[in-house]
């Protein structure tokens, strides 16, 4: 068979305008850079997402597993019109967000994962993603769902998203919520912030390398407690404990 199957499997991608990098100051006084990465950078992000697949707290396991699959699909050309933004502080990876273009007017928000907590990093990352859809890709609305209560509070409540009961979201097939251009404009300046251009040295530091997160969320430290079913509905912690005994982690 001489048909190139890969040609059939690989989606034809539409051109997407690149996201111009931006930066902002965090509560800690550090500069945080949001920038788009291409396929070549995905392998250096995946190792930092992978350990989170075993963190049940705040649905990190689910979000990490899905985002891992989405990044892999992007890397291996199995999803159409996807983009990935990374968020870095001093080169350190603090958040990853991704999404895709459904058509010229509608965007589909995928995931937001924060690897550093307590500084609103995830909220800024999500806002940058919305900015990409509306300001750079000039779309009319973005479909959004939340998988964790934190996400629900951040997106559905803070942005006052509209319900789209008739439209299934690609994540889990649940009814979507939507951020419209109007709601987005209302959030500009309060929820959506950031400065451009990024100072050269700050951007250079970010582009030089994606460094590992310094304090990512971890599974509970006390493994005996984690081994009890109440804390371990999926058995992940039990498995981890076993690995620990076998010296695998």
């Amino acid at each position: 068979m001489s048909v190139d199957l890969e040609k059939l499997l690989r989606p034809v991608e539409r051109p997407m305008a690149p996201f111009p990098p931006k930066y902002m100051v965090l509560a800690s006084g550090e500069n945080m850079v949001v920038r788009q990465v291409g396929r070549k950078d995905i392998p250096s992000i995946l190792p930092y997402i992978r350990p989170l697949i075993h963190v049940e707290r705040d649905y990190y396991d689910l979000v990490a597993a899905r985002i891992y699959a989405e990044l892999l699909a992007y890397y291996r050309y199995r999803v159409q019109d996807e983009y990935v933004l990374v968020v870095q502080v001093e080169g350190e990876l603090v958040a990853v967000v991704n999404g895709r273009m459904v058509n010229a007017d509608v965007g589909m928000s995928y995931h937001t994962i924060a690897l550093r907590r307590g500084l609103r990093v995830g909220a800024h990352a999500f806002a940058a993603k919305m900015e990409y859809h509306f300001d750079i890709l000039n779309q009319k609305e973005v479909l959004i769902v939340a998988e964790s209560p934190i996400g629900f509070r951040r997106w559905m409540i803070e942005y006052e998203l509209e319900k789209r009961p008739g439209i299934q979201h690609e994540l889990g097939g649940v009814p979507s919520y939507a951020l419209t251009k109007e709601l987005f404009d209302r959030a500009r300046g309060t929820l959506i912030v950031g400065r451009r251009p990024v100072p050269e040295d700050v951007l250079a530091k970010a582009e030089e390398a994606i460094l590992p997160p310094s304090d990512p969320p971890r599974p509970p430290a006390y493994l005996m407690a984690a081994a009890r079913s109440e804390y371990d509905p999926t058995g992940t912690a039990l498995m981890l404990q076993q690995w620990k005994q076998e010296g695998k982690v």
Binding site: G118, L191, G194
Partner: peptide
Amino acid sequence: LQQAITLEGILDSEEAFTNNP
């Protein structure tokens, strides 16, 4: 909380009131 914060980050910078709603 094991995270240092600064007055700049929570009060003075352009993004302070988004960081510190």
